[in-house]
Protein backbone atom coordinates (compact mmCIF):
# COMPACT_ATOMS: atom_id res chain seq x y z
CA UNK A 1 0.00 0.00 0.00
CA UNK A 2 1.43 3.36 -1.03
CA UNK A 3 1.22 5.89 1.78
CA UNK A 4 3.69 8.48 0.49
CA UNK A 5 3.36 9.59 -3.09
CA UNK A 6 5.44 12.27 -4.81
CA UNK A 7 4.67 13.15 -8.40
CA UNK A 8 6.56 15.62 -10.58
CA UNK A 9 8.51 17.22 -7.75
CA UNK A 10 10.61 20.23 -8.59
CA UNK A 11 12.72 22.01 -5.97
CA UNK A 12 15.28 24.71 -6.59
CA UNK A 13 17.47 27.00 -4.52
CA UNK A 14 17.65 30.14 -6.60
CA UNK A 15 19.00 29.08 -9.98
CA UNK A 16 20.21 25.69 -8.75
CA UNK A 17 17.67 22.99 -9.47
CA UNK A 18 17.87 20.19 -6.91
CA UNK A 19 14.99 18.06 -8.18
CA UNK A 20 13.17 18.27 -11.47
CA UNK A 21 10.22 15.98 -12.11
CA UNK A 22 11.00 13.48 -9.35
CA UNK A 23 8.50 10.69 -8.69
CA UNK A 24 8.61 8.58 -5.55
CA UNK A 25 6.30 6.14 -3.85
CA UNK A 26 6.78 4.64 -0.41
CA UNK A 27 4.77 2.04 1.47
CA UNK A 28 4.92 0.70 5.00
CA UNK A 29 8.43 -0.45 5.91
CA UNK A 30 11.91 0.95 6.37
CA UNK A 31 13.25 2.70 3.28
CA UNK A 32 16.87 3.67 2.97
CA UNK A 33 17.71 6.88 1.13
CA UNK A 34 21.24 6.81 -0.21
CA UNK A 35 23.19 9.19 -2.36
CA UNK A 36 26.38 11.23 -2.50
CA UNK A 37 26.74 14.60 -0.81
CA UNK A 38 24.61 17.22 -2.54
CA UNK A 39 22.37 14.64 -4.20
CA UNK A 40 19.27 16.15 -2.61
CA UNK A 41 18.60 13.74 0.26
CA UNK A 42 18.13 16.43 2.88
CA UNK A 43 16.06 18.55 0.50
CA UNK A 44 13.76 15.59 -0.15
CA UNK A 45 13.48 14.98 3.59
CA UNK A 46 12.55 18.62 4.20
CA UNK A 47 9.91 18.53 1.50
CA UNK A 48 8.38 15.35 2.90
CA UNK A 49 8.55 16.83 6.41
CA UNK A 50 6.52 19.78 5.03
CA UNK A 51 9.27 22.16 6.17
CA UNK A 52 10.06 23.24 2.61
CA UNK A 53 7.69 24.27 -0.16
CA UNK A 54 8.55 22.70 -3.50
CA UNK A 55 8.34 24.81 -6.67
CA UNK A 56 5.81 22.32 -7.98
CA UNK A 57 4.71 18.73 -7.58
CA UNK A 58 1.88 16.71 -6.16
CA UNK A 59 2.62 15.32 -2.70
CA UNK A 60 0.37 13.00 -0.73
CA UNK A 61 1.38 11.97 2.75
CA UNK A 62 -0.63 9.22 4.43
CA UNK A 63 -3.51 9.93 2.09
CA UNK A 64 -3.44 13.68 2.72
CA UNK A 65 -2.76 16.13 -0.08
CA UNK A 66 -0.44 18.62 1.60
CA UNK A 67 -1.54 21.50 -0.61
CA UNK A 68 -4.73 21.63 1.45
CA UNK A 69 -4.09 23.35 4.83
CA UNK A 70 -6.51 21.14 6.74
CA UNK A 71 -5.05 17.95 5.25
CA UNK A 72 -1.54 19.27 5.87
CA UNK A 73 -2.34 19.66 9.55
CA UNK A 74 -3.73 16.12 9.68
CA UNK A 75 -0.60 14.77 8.04
CA UNK A 76 1.68 16.68 10.40
CA UNK A 77 -0.02 15.11 13.42
CA UNK A 78 1.14 11.71 12.16
CA UNK A 79 4.62 12.81 11.15
CA UNK A 80 7.94 12.34 12.91
CA UNK A 81 11.02 14.17 11.67
CA UNK A 82 14.65 14.32 12.67
CA UNK A 83 16.62 16.94 10.68
CA UNK A 84 20.21 16.29 9.72
CA UNK A 85 21.55 19.00 12.03
CA UNK A 86 18.92 19.78 14.57
CA UNK A 87 18.99 22.77 16.84
CA UNK A 88 18.34 21.83 20.43
CA UNK A 89 16.97 23.80 23.33
CA UNK A 90 19.79 24.12 25.88
CA UNK A 91 17.46 25.09 28.72
CA UNK A 92 15.26 22.03 28.30
CA UNK A 93 15.81 18.67 29.90
CA UNK A 94 15.48 15.68 27.60
CA UNK A 95 12.03 15.00 29.04
CA UNK A 96 10.89 18.61 28.50
CA UNK A 97 12.23 18.59 24.94
CA UNK A 98 10.35 15.44 24.01
CA UNK A 99 7.26 16.67 25.87
CA UNK A 100 7.36 20.00 24.02
CA UNK A 101 7.22 18.23 20.68
CA UNK A 102 4.45 15.95 21.90
CA UNK A 103 2.43 19.11 22.56
CA UNK A 104 3.43 20.66 19.23
CA UNK A 105 2.22 17.50 17.50
CA UNK A 106 -1.15 18.01 19.21
CA UNK A 107 -1.17 14.69 21.01
CA UNK A 108 -4.04 14.16 23.44
CA UNK A 109 -2.79 15.68 26.74
CA UNK A 110 -3.64 12.59 28.77
CA UNK A 111 -1.36 10.44 26.59
CA UNK A 112 1.65 12.73 26.71
CA UNK A 113 3.43 11.76 29.98
CA UNK A 114 3.44 8.05 29.18
CA UNK A 115 4.34 8.61 25.52
CA UNK A 116 7.28 10.82 26.51
CA UNK A 117 8.70 8.24 28.91
CA UNK A 118 8.21 5.47 26.36
CA UNK A 119 9.98 7.41 23.59
CA UNK A 120 12.91 8.26 25.86
CA UNK A 121 13.12 4.65 27.02
CA UNK A 122 13.11 3.38 23.43
CA UNK A 123 16.22 5.40 22.61
CA UNK A 124 17.94 4.37 25.84
CA UNK A 125 18.03 7.80 27.49
CA UNK A 126 15.76 7.18 30.46
CA UNK A 127 18.62 7.57 32.95
CA UNK A 128 19.46 10.99 31.47
CA UNK A 129 15.86 12.11 31.02
CA UNK A 130 16.15 14.90 33.57
CA UNK A 131 19.53 16.19 32.38
CA UNK A 132 19.61 19.49 30.54
CA UNK A 133 20.27 19.08 26.84
CA UNK A 134 23.33 21.32 26.97
CA UNK A 135 25.00 18.65 29.13
CA UNK A 136 24.48 15.79 26.64
CA UNK A 137 27.06 14.34 24.25
CA UNK A 138 26.50 14.47 20.48
CA UNK A 139 25.24 10.89 20.36
CA UNK A 140 22.83 11.52 23.24
CA UNK A 141 21.50 14.64 21.54
CA UNK A 142 20.89 12.57 18.43
CA UNK A 143 18.97 10.02 20.48
CA UNK A 144 16.93 12.78 22.11
CA UNK A 145 16.12 13.99 18.59
CA UNK A 146 14.99 10.50 17.63
CA UNK A 147 12.83 10.38 20.78
CA UNK A 148 10.98 13.57 19.82
CA UNK A 149 10.48 12.15 16.32
CA UNK A 150 8.82 8.97 17.57
CA UNK A 151 6.94 10.34 20.58
CA UNK A 152 3.62 10.50 18.68
CA UNK A 153 3.98 6.98 17.21
CA UNK A 154 4.20 8.53 13.73
CA UNK A 155 2.84 6.75 10.69
CA UNK A 156 5.47 8.58 8.64
CA UNK A 157 8.92 8.86 10.16
CA UNK A 158 11.68 10.81 8.42
CA UNK A 159 15.17 10.43 9.83
CA UNK A 160 17.99 12.39 8.24
CA UNK A 161 21.28 10.72 9.13
CA UNK A 162 20.02 9.43 12.47
CA UNK A 163 23.07 7.31 13.24
CA UNK A 164 25.60 10.15 12.96
CA UNK A 165 27.38 10.31 16.30
CA UNK A 166 26.05 7.00 17.62
CA UNK A 167 28.57 4.41 18.80
CA UNK A 168 28.48 0.88 17.29
CA UNK A 169 26.41 -0.57 20.13
CA UNK A 170 23.87 2.26 19.87
CA UNK A 171 23.70 1.79 16.11
CA UNK A 172 22.86 -1.89 16.53
CA UNK A 173 20.11 -0.97 19.02
CA UNK A 174 18.87 1.76 16.70
CA UNK A 175 18.60 -0.65 13.78
CA UNK A 176 16.43 -2.93 15.93
CA UNK A 177 14.24 0.07 16.76
CA UNK A 178 13.98 0.94 13.07
CA UNK A 179 12.83 -2.58 12.20
CA UNK A 180 10.22 -2.38 14.96
CA UNK A 181 8.97 1.04 13.81
CA UNK A 182 8.82 -0.12 10.19
CA UNK A 183 6.30 -2.84 10.96
CA UNK A 184 3.37 -0.43 10.79
CA UNK A 185 4.80 2.91 9.62
CA UNK A 186 6.56 4.39 6.63
CA UNK A 187 10.13 5.03 7.76
CA UNK A 188 12.53 6.88 5.46
CA UNK A 189 16.14 6.94 6.62
CA UNK A 190 18.70 9.09 4.87
CA UNK A 191 22.20 7.81 5.50
CA UNK A 192 25.71 7.46 4.14
CA UNK A 193 26.21 4.21 6.08
CA UNK A 194 25.27 1.51 3.62
CA UNK A 195 25.63 -1.23 6.24
CA UNK A 196 22.70 0.35 8.11
CA UNK A 197 20.66 -0.05 4.96
CA UNK A 198 21.48 -3.74 4.62
CA UNK A 199 20.75 -4.38 8.28
CA UNK A 200 17.55 -2.44 8.73
CA UNK A 201 15.91 -1.43 5.47
CA UNK A 202 13.30 -3.31 3.48
CA UNK A 203 13.83 -1.14 0.41
CA UNK A 204 16.48 1.25 -0.88
CA UNK A 205 16.20 4.47 -2.88
CA UNK A 206 19.30 6.00 -4.39
CA UNK A 207 19.34 9.60 -5.56
CA UNK A 208 22.05 11.31 -7.55
CA UNK A 209 22.07 14.71 -9.17
CA UNK A 210 18.43 15.28 -8.31
CA UNK A 211 17.25 12.02 -9.88
CA UNK A 212 16.02 8.80 -8.36
CA UNK A 213 18.47 6.41 -9.99
CA UNK A 214 17.59 3.22 -8.14
CA UNK A 215 14.70 1.88 -6.13
CA UNK A 216 14.47 -1.71 -5.02
CA UNK A 217 15.48 -4.26 -2.42
CA UNK A 218 18.86 -4.13 -0.70
CA UNK A 219 19.64 -7.49 -2.32
CA UNK A 220 18.95 -6.00 -5.73
CA UNK A 221 21.35 -3.14 -5.05
CA UNK A 222 23.99 -5.61 -3.93
CA UNK A 223 23.43 -7.69 -7.06
CA UNK A 224 24.01 -4.62 -9.23
CA UNK A 225 27.69 -4.56 -8.23
CA UNK A 226 30.41 -6.70 -9.70
CA UNK A 227 33.93 -7.64 -8.69
CA UNK A 228 35.31 -4.80 -10.77
CA UNK A 229 33.36 -2.12 -8.90
CA UNK A 230 34.95 -0.19 -6.09
CA UNK A 231 33.85 -0.92 -2.55
CA UNK A 232 34.61 -3.23 0.35
CA UNK A 233 31.23 -4.91 0.60
CA UNK A 234 28.61 -6.11 -1.88
CA UNK A 235 26.33 -3.16 -1.16
CA UNK A 236 29.14 -0.63 -1.58
CA UNK A 237 29.99 -2.22 -4.93
CA UNK A 238 26.32 -2.13 -5.91
CA UNK A 239 26.07 1.50 -4.83
CA UNK A 240 29.08 2.59 -6.89
CA UNK A 241 27.95 0.51 -9.89
CA UNK A 242 24.49 2.08 -9.91
CA UNK A 243 25.93 5.58 -9.56
CA UNK A 244 28.42 4.97 -12.36
CA UNK A 245 25.67 3.62 -14.58
CA UNK A 246 23.36 6.53 -13.84
CA UNK A 247 26.08 9.05 -14.66
CA UNK A 248 26.66 7.58 -18.10
CA UNK A 249 23.00 8.10 -19.02
CA UNK A 250 22.49 11.54 -20.59
CA UNK A 251 20.04 13.69 -18.64
Amino acid sequence: MTTVSVDGLRVSYGKRVVFDDLDLELGVGVHGLLGPNGAGKTTLMRVLATALHPDRGDIRLLGHHIGDPSALRQARRQLGYLPQAFGFYPRFTVREFVEYFAWLKEMPPARIPLAVDRAIERVGLLERADDRMKHLSGGMLRRAGIAQAIVNDPRLLLLDEPTAGLDPEQRVQFRALLRELGLDAVVLVSTHLVEDVVAACTRVNLVDGGRLVFTGLPDELMAAGGDGDSGDSPIERGYTAVLRGARTVPR
Partner: peptide, 13 residues
Protein backbone atom coordinates in the same frame (compact mmCIF):
# COMPACT_ATOMS: atom_id res chain seq x y z
CA UNK B 1 12.40 31.74 16.69
CA UNK B 2 12.90 28.38 18.29
CA UNK B 3 16.15 26.43 18.27
CA UNK B 4 15.12 24.55 15.13
CA UNK B 5 12.65 26.20 12.81
CA UNK B 6 12.39 23.19 10.46
CA UNK B 7 11.56 20.89 13.30
CA UNK B 8 8.91 23.19 14.72
CA UNK B 9 7.35 24.01 11.35
CA UNK B 10 6.85 20.33 10.59
CA UNK B 11 4.37 20.17 13.48
CA UNK B 12 0.65 20.93 13.16
CA UNK B 13 0.49 23.81 15.65
Amino acid sequence: AGADEDLEHSTPL
